[in-house]
Design a protein around this nucleic acid. Structure first.
Lengths: 173, 173
DNA sequence: GGGCGCATGTAATGAGTTACATGATTGA
DNA sequence: TCAATCATGTAACTCATTACATGCGCCC
């Protein structure tokens, strides 16, 4: 549920950082793990601050714009551990938007459905090769595990889609 | 993206229905495909109505409360087909909240992490057996395909989790 | 008489995104 | 001098959920 808070607190557990830094890291390295926009992160940091889970200190270095450096508090690290335990123990029940369309495939000609699903398959395979070529061992075990996770599920997705397409195709005589 | 609209329009393509009926069907049979609450469906039907994609007719049968029966319009069926094509062709890029925790597993003792992940594994296996025992061939090919989809991905999830746990365990001497 | 089923919603809340705003410095 | 990088946000909006509200009829 609260994976965004967990992520922010976790990053601050590793080291105190300012918002821009956090956003940079997420955007650059965590794109396939979580999709959180900058204003969301800034707002969340603000909220964590008001809740007393982090403290801010404003710093300016040279002539750069001033930064708000966030530090996790002891209350925050307790919350972090709770969220972490919850996150590790929980399995999310996945539902897929893409399954809805399958319910209505009778409303399009069979060949068109097949063509469209082949498009979907290509998209999955693109994701797959992108993740296969992603660099490893750069940002810790967790990031690598997540990458592996994505790969495995994408392969399952690929297989399933291929088998669906196959069954929709008319059998050769 | 718009799988809720697609679902509602699709159900109205099959036959005109009133809101309660639609909600019943979704709740009873589509729980693993989509998670849409009743007020959402009512509100969406209202919106589709104002957009001109469906028309309402109020009916009362016997002494029951009056029903608003929704019929899809020709504009609506065009939109339906567009949404359907889009839905079939598109692959969603999946991100998993559960991966965030893995980034921080160094912050808990290794045995605790393993215990928590075993909990997660149990939860996945419960979902799996629930879906294995779900009835088939009751609501059309699409629903069965979605069930199969869930099964395949849950098995992949199970394998991945098991392998993660295994790697975290200390090797036997 | 009490609870469930039928049938409709509203209102409040929350989470997150998009688009926009600002302003300084650095590098080509 | 023009664009990109650094660094912060705000405001408006959408989407969906939760909790609540209403009222009749049917069955036990």
């Amino acid at each position: 549920m609260d994976e965004r808070e967990l992520l922010l607190l976790g990053m601050l557990m590793v080291q105190s950082q300012h918002g821009y830094q956090i956003n940079e890291f997420i955007e650059r390295n965590l794109g396939h793990i979580i999709d959180m926009k900058k204003p969301t992160a800034y707002a969340l940091l603000e909220r964590l601050c008001q809740a007393g889970y982090v403290k801010v200190r404003t710093e300016r270095e040279g002539k750069r714009p001033p930064r708000k450096v966030y530090h996790i508090t002891s209350a925050g690290s307790i919350v972090f551990l709770d969220l972490l335990r919850e996150n590790l123990a929980q399995a999310e029940h996945m539902t897929f938007a893409g399954d809805v369309g399958l319910m209505f495939l009778d409303h399009l000609p069979r060949e068109e459905v097949i063509a469209l699903l082949r498009q979907r398959l290509s998209a999955v395979e693109e994701q797959l090769t992108a993740h296969e070529h992603a660099p490893r061992h750069e940002h810790g075990l967790g990031v690598d595990l997540a990458l592996e996770h994505a790969l495995l599920l994408e392969r399952a997705e690929q297989q399933w889609l291929a088998s669906v397409i196959q069954r929709l195709e008319p059998l050769p005589e």
